[in-house]
C-alpha cells in the first residue's frame, strides 16, 4: 500500500472574484522514502497543494477528492485527528523563515512544542531530543543556546530551526515548500544538502516544492510540473527532464542555458515563456496554456486535454506534445 495517495484533489478558494478552483484534479502517489518535486511558475498552486496535504487551507475553502495517508483519507478526519497527524506524521517547512517563527518564543520552546504535543516524553527526554535535533540541523546547543529568540538568528539559521521543528517527531513525510527561495545563494545549497541528508538518513518521504528546476533535478526522483493548478506533466525526473513532452515544461527548460544534462542545470528563475499565467477567473475553457503555447491546435481552446502516456510512469496533459524531433 502506498504511503500517500492523492486522488483527484480539487481545492476551491474564496478570492476577490468569488470562489475559484485553484487546484484541479491532482493525482499522485508516494511510497515511503520517495522524493517528489513539484515545479511551476509562481501562483500555479504549489503551496495550496502542500497546505491541502496538511489540511491547513483557509477555513472558507473547499477541498474535494481524497488524500489517503496509509489507508486513511485525511480529508474525512475530524480536527483532533488531523492535529495528531500534523507535525507528527507529516512535517512542513515553510518558505519564509523570517516570519514563520514566533518572535516572542525562544527557539528551544518552539522546537520542543511538537515533541510535547505528539510524543509522550518526560522533560529530560524532551530536552535530549531537542538537543539531538539541534545537532542534526547544525545548531549544536553548545554553540547556539536554546534560549535564543528568532531575531537573534540569521535567515539560514532560522530555516534550520524550522527544519528541526518539522522533523522533531520523525514524520513519514516532509513537505518543503520553497525552503531556500528566501535565502542567500550560498546558504541555499547548505540548507538543501541538509534536507536531502535528513531525508536519506531517516527514510522519510520528501515533497520538495520549487520554481527552481536545478533544485528539483538535484533532489527529486519524481516530478510533477504544475500550471494553473493542474498537473501538466508528471513522471520520473530523468524521463521528464530528458524527454520533456509538454510545451510548458519545455518552456521552463528553455529558461535555462545548456539544456541536455540535467545535472549541470543552472539555477535560474523561470521567466522566458511569453505571456503571463492567466488570472484565476480568466482561465480559458480548453487547455489553460493555450494562449501562451506555440503548438496550440484548434482543439486546444475547446476541450481540456486528458492525460496521455509518454512512457511508463511518464504522463503528459497535452494534445500536441513535443517529440524528439521537435527539440532538435
Amino acid at each position: 500500500m502506498a504511503l500517500l495517495q492523492v486522488q483527484d484533489l480539487c481545492v476551491t478558494l474564496n478570492t476577490a472574484h468569488g470562489p475559484q478552483e485553484v487546484i484541479s484534479h491532482i493525482n499522485f502517489s508516494m511510497e515511503a522514502g520517495d522524493k517528489m518535486g513539484i515545479v511551476g511558475e509562481s501562483g500555479c498552486g504549489k503551496s495550496i497543494t502542500a497546505l491541502a496535504l496538511m489540511s491547513l487551507l483557509p477555513r472558507d475553502s473547499q477541498t474535494r477528492g481524497k488524500i489517503i495517508l496509509e489507508g486513511r483519507d485525511i480529508l474525512k478526519l475530524n480536527s483532533n485527528k488531523i492535529c495528531s497527524i500534523r507535525g507528527n506524521r507529516i512535517g512542513m517547512i515553510f518558505q519564509e523563515p523570517m516570519t514563520a517563527l514566533n518572535p516572542v518564543k525562544q527557539i528551544g520552546a518552539q522546537v520542543s512544542e511538537s515533541i510535547y504535543l505528539h510524543l509522550k516524553l518526560t522533560r529530560k527526554q524532551t530536552l535530549e531530543r531537542v538537543s539531538e535535533l539541534m545537532d542534526k540541523v547544525g545548531l549544536p546547543v553548545s554553540k547556539f543556546g536554546l534560549n535564543l529568540y528568532p531575531h537573534q538568528l540569521s535567515g539560514g539559521q532560522r530555516q534550520r530551526v524550522m527544519i528541526a521543528m518539522a522533523i522533531a517527531c520523525n514524520p513519514e513525510i516532509l513537505i518543503a515548500d520553497e525552503p531556500t527561495t528566501a535565502l542567500d545563494v550560498t546558504v541555499q545549497e547548505q540548507i538543501l544538502d541538509l534536507i536531502r541528508d535528513l531525508a536519506d538518513s531517516s527514510g522519510m518521504a520528501l515533497i520538495i516544492i520549487s520554481h527552481d528546476l536545478g533544485v528539483i533535478a538535484q533532489t527529486a526522483e519524481n516530478v510533477m510540473v504544475m500550471y494553473t493548478g493542474q498537473s501538466v506533466e508528471m513522471g520520473s525526473t530523468m524521463d521528464v527532464f530528458q524527454n520533456m513532452s509538454h510545451p510548458y515544461t519545455y518552456g521552463l527548460f528553455s529558461a535555462i542555458p545548456h539544456v541536455g544534462s540535467s545535472v549541470q542545470l543552472d539555477r535560474k528563475r523561470l521567466n522566458s515563456i511569453p505571456g503571463q499565467v492567466p488570472e484565476l477567473h480568466l482561465r480559458p475553457r480548453g487547455c489553460n496554456f493555450a494562449d501562451r503555447c506555440s503548438r496550440a491546435l484548434k482543439i486546444c481552446k475547446d476541450k481540456e486535454p486528458m492525460a496521455t502516456r509518454v512512457a511508463d510512469h511518464h504522463q503528459v496533459w497535452c494534445y500536441h506534445p513535443l517529440t524528439c524531433e521537435d527539440k532538435k
Binding site: 492535529c83 495528531s84 497527524i85 500534523r86 507535525g87 507528527n88 516570519t99 514563520a100 512544542e113 504535543l117
Partner: peptide, 11 residues
Amino acid sequence: DFIRTARAKGI
C-alpha cells in the same frame, strides 16, 4: 505566518 507554523506542528 508563525501561527500557521504552529498549527503545522499539530497544535
